[in-house]
Amino acid sequence: MKLVPRNLFFVVTLVAALFAAGCSRQSGEHLVLTGSSTIAPLATVLAERFEAAHPGVKVDVQAGGSARGVADVRQGLANIGMVSRALKADEGDLVADTIAQDGIAMIVHRDNPVAALTREQIIAIYTGKLRDWKAVGGTDAPITVVNKAEGRSTLELFLSHLKLEAPAIRADVVIGDNQQGIKTVAGNPQAIGYVSIGTAEYEAGRGTPVRLLPLDGVEPSTATVAAGRFPLSRPLNLVHRGELSGIARDFVAFARSPQVNDLVTGQYFVPPAVR
């Protein structure tokens, strides 16, 4: 009588073990990508289209940060790593293939007379030291500083480019996505903000009253970003180590091909110039 429940427990364990053994991993080719959470959504849509074109192949995308992508490729836990920056000097053992550029543009209202801002002026505006457009050659009106919410990749890129820390920013408006940024600046002639350059160029071309500001003398456009000349941009890389297997090589080539340009722009990134 006392032994019955114990037997029952063993039976349950046994059944569970059999079940586990029963649904073992399916064969077929399997590709694992890990790394930057900025690239992960793009990699997911690339993987979807790649899987559709290659039946039987599974591409698993795992997010966790660029550092994780590098570490996993080195340890052999992932076939391909996703790194949203250029490789560092001590990462010479890895090979990087750029699949897109992530660029951001400073935008102001179309009616704002200020033609350009220097890097120092932008820093002063975003840290609250400069509060009036008059000081940078504009009208006599207070500046509305529009900043991105914490955790956004555009915010990270913006901060690292200007070498600022997040707590140093004095923002009047905090926005979430690009569309919200465009709407905020388009509706306020005194606002300054920054959004993904693809979105900004598209909206300005469509007649939305926003204007893109040149940075360090470089014209803000997807063309200069694609060429890697625009300062506020970073490459989105797929990295690997040593020889790639057949299917992994196919995937990297696919991710760099013009047939996925729509997916890249769909995620507000810029396809690289050399394809």
Binding site: A20, C23, S24, R25, Q26, A40, T44, K58, D60, V61, Q62, A63, G64
Partner: peptide, 16 residues
């Protein structure tokens, strides 16, 4: 779960 169950949105076929 980001570190263990992962990020894949495909229909799960097995618990592996």
């Amino acid at each position: 779960l980001l570190f263990t169950a992962g990020y894949v949105t495909r229909w799960p076929g097995s618990w592996f």
